[in-house]
Write a protein that binds this DNA or RNA. Structure first.
Length: 467
RNA sequence: GGCGGCAUAGCCAAGCGGUAAGGCAGAGGACUGCAAAUCCUCCAUCCCCGGUCCGAAUCCGGGUGCCGCCUCCA
């Protein structure tokens, strides 16, 4: 089976065929860097990271672009409130973004362009839209003329008239049509501004993505991702701008993730019901958050709760334990006879994993296959004193392959080494030999306080860090 | 008003026409000096009502409930 993705443009699941064979041009909307991001924002970041990794794992060369919106009303307001400049604010929260994103195991994009570094490109595309009659200038503002693009609404499946009648936007005298949107905004005196043919100003929100996507990926890109709330107006407007400017189809596959909910409501900055990743990290390992976000299909809403994270933590521990046990067994046991049951289980799960991921990135289904292998490995390790080299190798290869996409544990080795801990373990082993269980338990408790968990096995004690 | 999503065990969650994956929690048992980890066993007929079909959680019609977008928003 080949990879199929649900395309919001056609509202159908389609076989994925990139424009250029073997290569994928992938753009996803990044954060506006005026604050820490919350776990709802983290959902697309993690999701599209996994999609990108999966595409790479099945052999595609992926150019992955994620922008930073570093100039807009919110940036200006926040900078004013905190008494720093907009660029300072942007630099700070780009750094904070990377700290959280790195902790979530999100790979750096191929490129992370910033809106304010792309003014030439933005001005170029706005000029072009004016030239081609798709935009008009009004006192330093430039607006896109929605009526000049008959296909407007094709992503959100809304006719222009429906949009007009449902519009809750205020009537703006400067616009020809209430649906027209700003490509360029004249700046007020104290605001950051850039020189342009229309005077000093700054770009509208939508135009930066069109400019950056086009500059780095070309007129037509394969995948554009983002949260469902961006479908309208953001992505609809991107399409209008890009397609009017280039005359080409802007995006082949539009992918949107469903929201993260809290108390049956969408988590959002404006509702104030958000939990930042930075904050959750104080209580949970960020990879637990990552697991949690991948435990449901990306087009289904997911409900945030402490219980949900607790469950994710236990599940993730089960996977990690298995990987640790497996590596421990290889180092401390002797090979034994073949175990066909193990090999077969891995083979079956491996196929199931691929089928699930090929089916519109069904991460939840894929995880089920991972646990099938976990169970098979555990059973094998329980039923044998040694280990089946072939079976264990295939299981390990599978787990490593999955991990290259899901990113649940450090790939090198899960086995820890630490002089101090190893010393205490040796002392404990000696104590246990002499049936000095008091001392033995003291050492275990001592390490437990440091988050080190000891497990006794037939091959001696091993330890791991609490997730 | 327009467009769209969701409803599967105590909780989370796959499945999308062939007789309910997986995880968490729980109960009992095994192993252990005690633990932990692990193993074994147990734990659902899929919101309701009709219909199509040999066969439906899966398709169609009608309900009920919840949510989202149409304004900044991942």
């Amino acid at each position: 089976m080949a990879l199929a993705v649900y395309n919001d443009l056609t509202r159908k699941k389609e076989t994925f065929e990139p424009i250029e064979k073997g290569k994928v041009k992938f753009y996803t909307c990044g954060p506006t860097v005026y604050d820490f991001f919350h776990i709802g924002n983290a959902r697309p970041f993690v999701l599209f990271d996994v999609f990108r990794r999966y595409l790479e794992s099945i052999g595609y060369e992926v150019t992955f672009v994620q922008n930073f919106t570093d100039i807009d009303d919110k940036m200006i307001r926040r900078a004013n409130e905190t008494g720093i400049t907009v660029p300072e604010l942007a630099d700070k929260f780009i750094a904070e973004y990377f700290e959280d994103a790195d902790s979530l195991g999100i790979k750096r994009a191929t490129l992370h362009p910033r809106a304010t570094h792309e003014m030439d490109e933005i001005i170029k595309i706005v000029s072009k839209l004016i030239e081609k009659g798709h935009a008009y200038e009004r006192n330093g503002d430039v607006y896109f003329s929605v009526s000049s693009f008959p296909e407007y609404g094709k992503l959100s499946k809304q006719g222009i008239d429906d949009l007009r009648s449902g519009a809750r936007i205020e009537v703006d005298e400067r616009k020809n049509d209430p649906l027209d949107f700003a490509l360029w905004k004249a700046s007020k005196p104290e605001e950051p501004s850039w020189e342009s043919p229309w005077g000093k100003g700054r770009p509208g929100w939508h135009i930066e993505c069109s400019a950056m996507a086009t500059k780095y990926l070309g007129n037509s890109i394969d995948i554009h991702g983002g949260g469902s709330d961006l479908i309208f107006p953001h992505h609809e407007n991107e399409i209008a701008q890009s397609e009017c400017a280039s005359g080409c189809q802007f995006v082949k596959y539009w992918l949107h993730n469903a929201y993260l909910m809290i108390d049956k409501e969408k988590m959002s900055k404006s509702l104030g019901n958000f939990m930042t990743v930075r904050n959750i990290r104080k209580k949970f390992n960020p990879l637990v958050i990552r697991y949690f976000l991948l435990s449901a299909h990306y087009r289904s809403p997911i409900n945030f709760s402490k219980e949900g994270l607790d469950q994710a933590q236990s599940a993730l521990e089960r996977i990690n334990n298995c990987y640790t046990d497996l590596n421990f067994a290889v180092l401390n046991r002797k090979p034994c006879g073949k175990d066909d049951a193990l090999s077969e289980a891995v083979l079956k799960a491996s196929k199931g994993y691929t089928d699930a991921m090929d089916d519109d990135f069904n991460t939840a289904g894929a995880l089920g296959c991972v646990f099938d292998v976990v169970r098979a490995v555990n059973v094998h390790l329980t039923e044998n004193n040694g280990f089946c080299e072939e079976g264990i190798k295939s299981a390990k290869d599978f787990l490593v392959k999955v991990n290259s996409v899901f990113g649940f544990f450090p790939p090198e080795s899960s086995l820890n080494s630490d002089e101090e801990i190893d010393g205490l373990l040796a002392e404990r082993a000696e104590a246990r030999k002499c049936k000095n269980f008091k001392r033995s338990d003291e050492i275990r408790d001592l390490l437990a306080e440091k988050g080190i968990i000891i497990e006794d096995t037939a091959q001696g004690a091993r330890w791991k860090r609490q997730i």
